[in-house]
């Protein structure tokens, strides 16, 4: 680990660009809308199911193509996939996140986009999410996994 490695702005600008495009999709498809999330959890509209479902299908096909044709990164590196081992956290933590998602109408990505759209009070929600993350870090060893 090279902890003294400085942060390169030129290496990271590409992620800002992808983030911008992603944020625009979030806003224009109303994925950051509290109302669309309420419709989803009440089974009152197909919209969010269509968004998530088609995103998963496109993601799956893309990953399959990358593996099948052994596609490399633009720098010629082998693309690696990490496995996510099962833990009880996926159940307990998943339920906690579900509660929070329905309350705030936002998963972490939309929080950033919402602040950008001018919903300034969401800054408090983001800070609270950071505190929640910190609480998990402190309590981690005491929680069932």
């Amino acid at each position: 680990m090279s902890s003294n490695k400085s942060i390169s702005w030129t290496d990271n600008i590409k992620y800002v660009i992808v983030g911008i495009l992603f944020g625009i999709v979030f806003v224009k498809a109303e994925i950051i809308s509290w109302y669309r999330i309420q419709e989803m959890f009440r089974f009152q509209a197909f919209h969010m199911y269509g968004v998530i479902g088609s995103a998963v299908v496109v993601g799956m096909i893309s990953v399959w193509l990358i593996k099948k044709f052994n596609i490399k990164t633009i720098e010629g590196e082998e693309i690696t996939f990490k496995t996510k081992p099962f833990s009880k956290g996926q159940v307990y933590g998943g339920l906690c996140f579900g509660f929070g998602w329905a309350l705030t109408g936002a998963c972490p990505g939309p929080l950033y986009a919402l602040i950008g759209t001018g919903a300034s009070v969401i800054i408090v929600t983001l800070i609270s999410a950071v505190i929640g993350t910190m609480a998990y870090g402190i309590l981690k060893d005491k929680l069932p996994h």
């Binding site: 996140f97 929070g100 972490p108 800070i127 609270s128």
Partner: peptide, 22 residues
């Protein structure tokens, strides 16, 4: 409850579950 507790649950829950919707 909506803004602060909700945000806390999003942060706590996503780390406990090791991921969110994305």
């Amino acid at each position: 409850i909506l803004l602060v507790v909700g945000g806390f649950l999003v942060g706590f829950g996503t780390r406990y579950a090791e991921g969110c919707t994305s």
